[in-house]
């Protein structure tokens, strides 16, 4: 049988500021015996524009995305938020076969591993106390887990992957899935509330003994890291792709 061929989408801020997350994602997928292609003309999913109210201006960005990714079996990205944006908000494009394909086949990294590859145990080591920050768009948008507001069966794809890691201790948070306050351009339009939310998120992790905060979205972590570094805190942020790729800290 032919190898699964995926298009790797590396969100703009990861490309520019966190290449190690892109590299970890790329390496991990290759190890899983997948043909990974990174279309080099990709830019961004367009979410920063659309969330600012400039959905119309984002259309050429969306079109560029579709042009770059419509030929693959799946599109995989280390971001729940970008995947959700493509799925949910590319509805304003004309729904051509390519657009439909892209929207249907885009996956956040963890859900791609658990749902498409059907793998739970990646045989990794991570001997740290870890707090999982459930990024909102992954959790409530893509339903990577059950969100605390809904009265449904509890599950979490991210936990499923991480709890198999050797030596890991996943801590329980007081507020299991509260927003970190990043929210894209929200972090700029509402800096005070954004930072206050970030601080609360960090102290929840600290209070419960986490050494590492991980998440499916580097954007949340970028925001939290910004506060951690400003306040010289000890706790660290690590994107989940780096853990799943068995990177050493």
């Amino acid at each position: 049988m032919d190898k699964i061929r995926i298009g790797l989408f590396i969100p703009c801020y990861i490309d520019q500021f966190y290449p190690q997350v892109g590299i970890a994602t790329f390496e991990l997928l290759q190890k899983l015996d997948i043909e990974v292609v990174y279309p080099e003309k990709q830019t961004c999913c367009g979410q920063p524009l659309a969330n600012s109210g400039a959905e119309k201006e984002a259309i050429p960005v969306y079109q560029n995305f579709v042009r770059n990714f419509s030929e693959f079996d799946y599109i995989v990205t280390p971001s729940g938020s970008c995947a959700y944006h493509v799925k949910e908000h590319y509805n304003i494009l004309e729904q051509t076969e390519q657009v439909k394909r892209v929207r249907a086949n885009i996956y956040e990294l963890c859900e791609f591993i658990t749902d498409i590859l059907k793998i739970d145990d990646l045989k990794i080591d991570f001997p740290y106390k870890v707090g999982i920050h459930q990024s909102c768009h992954g959790l409530r948008g893509l339903k990577l887990g059950s969100s605390s507001e809904l009265i449904t069966t509890r599950y979490s794809k991210v936990h499923r992957l991480l709890e198999k890691a050797n030596g890991i201790e996943i801590i329980t948070l007081d507020r299991e899935d509260e927003c970190c306050g990043f929210g894209g351009t929200f972090s700029i339009f509402e800096p005070h509330v954004s930072v206050k939310m970030g601080k609360a998120r960090i102290s929840d992790h600290e209070r419960n003994g986490a050494e590492i905060i991980t998440a499916t979205d580097m954007s949340c972590l970028m925001h939290l890291e910004g506060i951690i570094r400003r306040e010289n805190k000890k706790i660290k942020v690590v994107h989940i792709a780096e853990i799943l790729n068995n990177n050493r800290l």
Binding site: C136, E149, G184, F189, M197
Partner: peptide, 8 residues
């Protein structure tokens, strides 16, 4: 804009 769009 007074929302992080967390969907809660």
């Amino acid at each position: 804009f007074a929302s992080s769009l967390c969907m809660s």
